[in-house]
Write a protein that binds this DNA or RNA. Structure first.
Length: 392
DNA sequence: GGTATTTGACCCCG
DNA sequence: CGGGGTCAAATACC
């Protein structure tokens, strides 16, 4: 399926090129989108953000490809497509008819194999942790990184006060997106969420405003948008917080990044690109492919929206080398999860140069194994049939 | 009616 | 053996 990946990559890169061009020739671009009137700064930000997202996506895909290359040595035939093949496991009492056809054992075996397969696959996926800090700890909602996730489990974790939520990309079926994340609220600081991502998004998530508008659609006020102000406030507050919690030590040259970004957030490995104030997200994907996700009004704001300024979050970012052990997180704030940065140094290869490609990926090179044939099972078409993934 | 979440069981791994 | 991750039926939601 590399062909598919590469194709996707090319497509994304094409987007990027176009966007970059737009940055260079505002005049021309101005014609199409953004008739908002006040172009200029906002316009550039919008485009820059798109570009940023695009690059992030490209990086993600490229990484996957690279990983795949390193991984299997190309071989590996694997029962891949079997996404929906699940014998019904005698989970619940209802599957009474399990007696017919296959035995429970068979079902179990099948399940096992499949599971094993996924495990194997998962193991090779890049994994990193980020800390999201929400302004209001009392709120229940979890931070929204802009991607759409579907919760598939929750578990109480030993020693943790709060349960851990398991999510996977909504488009897992439709597009075979392998991304998953685990969200766990820190028991030390209610406002902090540890989010462990695994696997980069390979899906085309075209999210639009509409979604955000869903709850409390404060139609983008035509005039001095408050978002700017809010953002500023937010940043301000954040800064204070930051200072308060930890002396502003020279940012570790390593993987840890902490950026309080506003809305958009594309790949976990987002660059410290503090630019975009949030003007109504420009029509993202100009190429249909799309852009990442800029926008999104994080749901942890109460619909009341009164505290719109809180719709932002700050976060830490850390890469977790495989093998677990060292899970280095550099966080200002929490006493709880303040592991020391370790090894990994290697990884810092990262370019944390905002200038560089609108986004330095401070994402360490990843050379893991990844199922060579992964992302795009040609099964587009339908994804519904919700009993969940089953063929039928 | 289609989706997303909940929730208890199942499975793998340390 | 138990913890952690996932599955999938049931349920809630829109």
């Amino acid at each position: 399926m590399d062909g598919g990946d590469i194709h996707l990559l090319l497509s994304i890169l094409a987007d990027g090129e176009k966007q970059a061009r737009q940055l260079g020739e505002p005049a021309a671009a101005a014609d199409d989108e953004y008739h908002g009137g006040g172009r200029g700064e906002e316009y550039y930000r919008g485009v820059a953000r798109q570009l940023q997202g695009t690059l992030a996506r490209a990086m993600g895909v490229a990484r996957a490809i690279e990983a795949a290359a390193f991984a299997g040595g190309g071989g590996g035939g694997g029962a891949s497509g079997s996404r929906g093949t699940t014998g019904d496991r005698s989970d619940s009492p209802r599957s009474a008819d399990e007696s017919s056809g296959r035995t429970a054992r068979d079902a179990a075996v099948a399940q096992q194999e499949r599971h094993h397969d996924t495990i194997k696959r998962r193991k090779g996926l890049p994994r990193w942790t980020e800390k999201f800090r929400v302004p209001d700890a009392s709120l229940e909602a979890t931070p929204d990184d802009g991607f759409s996730w579907r919760k598939y489990g929750q578990k109480d974790i030993l020693g943790a006060k709060f349960p851990r939520g398991y999510y996977r990309c909504t488009y897992r079926n439709a597009q075979g997106c392998p991304a998953t994340k685990q969200v766990q609220r820190s028991d030390a600081d209610l406002a902090v969420f540890d989010v462990t991502y695994q696997g980069a998004h390979t899906c085309h998530q075209k999210q639009r405003r509409a979604a955000a508008a869903g709850d409390q659609p404060p139609p983008p006020p035509p005039q001095a948008d408050p978002s700017v102000e809010l953002l500023v406030n937010f940043r301000h507050g954040l800064k204070v917080e930051t200072n308060g919690l930890a002396p502003p030590p020279p940012p570790p040259p390593t993987t840890t990044t902490n950026f309080h970004d506003d809305q958009h957030f594309c790949f976990p490995s987002m660059p410290p690109f503090h630019a975009g104030v949030g003007p109504p997200p420009p029509p993202d994907d100009a190429l249909g492919g799309g852009g990442c996700n800029n926008f999104s009004s994080p749901p942890f704001v109460s619909p009341a929206g009164s505290a719109a300024g809180e719709s932002y979050f700050s976060m830490e970012h850390s890469y977790e080398p495989r093998g677990g052990g060292g899970h280095f997180v550099m966080s200002r704030g929490d006493s709880s999860e303040l592991h020391e940065v370790v090894s990994a140094a290697a990884s810092s290869s990262a370019v944390v140069d905002p200038a560089a490609a609108g986004g330095g990926f401070d994402y360490p090179l990843y050379h893991g194994e990844v199922d060579p044939h992964l992302p795009f099972p040609p099964l587009f078409g339908h994804a519904s049939m919700y009993g969940q993934y089953r063929d039928a």
